[in-house]
Amino acid sequence: MENIFVIAEHRQGEIRDITFEMLNLGNSLAKENDMTVTSVLLGKDTGDIQEKLQKASDRVLVMDAPELADYNADYYLAALEGIIKEKTPRLVLIGHTSAGMDLAPPLSVRTGAPLATDCMDVRLTGDTLEATRQVFGGKINAELSLKPSATYMVTVRPGCFPDAGDLGKSAETDTIPVPEWTNLRGRHFLEYLTSETEDVDIAAADILVSVGRGIGKPENIPMVEEFATAIGATVSCSRPVADKEWLPKSRQVGVSGKTVKPKIYIALGISGAFQHQAGMKNADTIIAVNTDAAAPIFSVAHYGIVGDLLQVIPVLTEKFKNA
């Protein structure tokens, strides 16, 4: 039977949201094409996760080994190369996440499956696979067709599909024997590290004034701090501002920083890359100030100002000082 594989992602015993987003996509592609959805779960003692996958899959394939407890490219590649070559799924879905980004390119080399990464939409029709992804900093969409192949591989951008949740399915679970590990390269997982205590918790703030690279230089940050104080807000930032140490890392909003859901999020000079949007798009009200009318931030903002933040902010601050 023609088949769609979803590589289940989990960390420290928790299934990751992307897995159910991929199951949503996988199930709709399967329906359109009369195919089935198989969740592939690599791990150690994953009983709880299996149960959740069964409700949204037609089949669950499980490989259980101590080497698979934590994501490790060496073992994941060895295991998945074998499974994919043996079962020849039509399409393999992998998350465009820290694990999936690490895994997919070498896996495509080993299996010979054409790979499109960071896809926001995928269409499977007959022989061809089409995908939509973003290029040039999210300002342009690219519609791709991949060359005909028995198996395709796609990494799926987080946050693009709703959670499949419980589809009322009750898949059978098959256990796959652990292979003899070959082609290992000596990579070892050592431990997880979480960040130390921080100055403020931006996730707890009602109002965030967030600065991006458009601020230009660190000398401009006090102007934004003054504005934030005037409206009772906390200052947060996009990644480049934290990378340059203009503000502490603990203030960074986005996939690799914090997820925030304030009443008001004011984005100043932030282009709105998906990694940033992932951390703030659920704010109640989003106001964006950007010199570029085509900046992707305006696609998630509720209110937009096309203008120079260095001009807008002082005037806006005065409005509150005089109020």
């Binding site: 054409p114 790979l115 499109a116 290029v135 300002k139 342009i140 969409n141 690219a142 519609e143 791709l144 067709s145 991949l146 060359k147 192949s149 964006a288 009318a293 085509a294 900046a295 992707p296 305006f298 696609s299 998630v300 903002a301 509720h302 209110y303 937009g304 100002i305 096309v306």
Partner: peptide, 21 residues
């Protein structure tokens, strides 16, 4: 040699979402 047989670029419509001041 590419696995991408065609690529068509489009500028996504940004509008719709934000009310511009």
């Amino acid at each position: 040699g590419s696995c991408v047989t065609s690529r068509k670029l489009v500028i996504p419509s940004i509008g719709g979402a934000a009310e511009m001041l």
